[in-house]
């Protein structure tokens, strides 16, 4: 490890709507090293999905990448031509969407949706592609792959559909997998199946993964490193152990204490007051300051830079060094 595969620098993706410019991603920087899983954590509206979509340059209208660099193996994806991007999408970088029910085309069979991807990126005949597709279904542990491959998406359950989506994403052995809340719509026992599967396949195929989720439990189990986003900016970025055991950003602390923990029983859950800000006119200075219990006057004036406070531990908080947050897991 240590070779970086993907590096995002100061990415800004804005949506120009009738109500104003929504600054969905406003200067996000992160990196993914080869073979690692990066957990991208945040609530809805924090810019997780838009960041991932920006990497593949498939941000829906009226979204636009207005600034920044996205370096994949040292090459800036934002400078590539559309036909060059098409060779990267699906082959080098694959995407698993949040909702398998809408990311699969209902009028094509599983077979044709897999074959389409395989034949687009690999120089194989139809028969060979079918064999590869069956092999893929076997890889994602779908029973009777030879029969199920003829099914249409509506004939599959939610868990099966997500397995299908995983199979399609892996069909060309990508180096990087962007998984956008891959288990949010699934039941816990099925979620455990899919996460276990993704973990094994990642090891087997040696890829890197960006796992987008709002569930701190999932990243604790899956991620090597975590980047916490809030309202379009990075709050904190560090190894999983560091994030959970020595967080330095107040928002990370708040996220950790607001989640009910199965093993720790609390009389009252800690509450983050207020709601997620409107991104058309986000709060000045640090975007978390209106909800932050440590906020001072300066927090509303100065935008905190993302600084390396300890080795490999990046925090964007003006008061990070003074406030001495204790991890809720320590008590």
């Amino acid at each position: 490890m240590s070779k970086e595969l993907l590096k995002i620098e100061n990415l800004k993706t804005y949506f120009d709507t009738w109500a104003g410019v929504v600054k969905a991603v406003d200067g996000i920087s992160l990196e993914v090293e080869e073979g690692e899983t990066l957990g991208l954590v945040g609530e809805s509206g924090s810019g997780k999905t838009v960041t991932a979509l920006s990497v593949l340059r498939i941000v829906p209208r009226p979204g636009k990448i207005v600034d920044g660099r996205i370096l994949y193996r040292g090459e800036n994806l934002l400078e590539k031509k559309e036909n060059e991007m098409q060779k990267i999408r699906g082959k080098e970088i694959a995407y698993i969407f949040q909702d398998p029910a809408t990311s699969l085309n209902p009028v094509f069979s599983i077979a044709s949706q897999l074959i389409e991807v395989i034949r687009r990126h690999q120089n194989v005949g139809k028969q060979e592609a079918i064999e590869k597709a069956i092999e893929l279904l076997r890889l994602v542990e779908i029973p009777d792959p030879k029969i199920r491959i003829r099914d249409y998406p509506h004939q599959l359950s939610g868990g099966m559909k997500q397995r299908m989506a995983v199979a399609r994403a892996l069909s060309c052995q990508p180096s990087l997998l962007l998984a956008d809340e891959p288990t949010t719509n699934l039941d816990v026992t099925i979620q455990a199946q899919i996460l276990g599967l993704m973990k094994n396949l990642k090891k087997k195929l040696g890829m890197s993964m960006v796992l987008i989720t709002h569930d701190m439990g999932i990243v604790a189990d899956m991620a090597d490193r975590i980047t916490v986003l809030y309202a379009g900016r990075v709050c904190e970025s560090a190894s999983t152990i560091t994030i959970f055991y020595s967080p330095m950003h107040p928002y990370t602390e708040a996220l950790l204490t607001a989640v009910p923990h199965l093993a720790i029983k609390r009389e009252k859950l800690a509450v983050i007051p207020g709601t997620i800000p409107n991104l058309i006119e986000p709060p000045s200075g640090c975007r978390f300051h209106p909800r932050c219990k440590y906020a001072r006057a300066t927090c509303s004036e100065i935008v905190p830079p993302l600084e390396e406070i300890e080795p490999e531990h990046y925090v964007a908080c003006l008061r990070a060094k003074e406030i001495a947050i204790r991890s809720p897991l320590e008590s």
Partner: peptide, 20 residues
Amino acid sequence: ALMSAIPIPDPRTKVSRIIL
């Protein structure tokens, strides 16, 4: 199985997961 399937927000707890 249901309980073991819940992801625990603590990277140091390693549950032996019963996968149904």
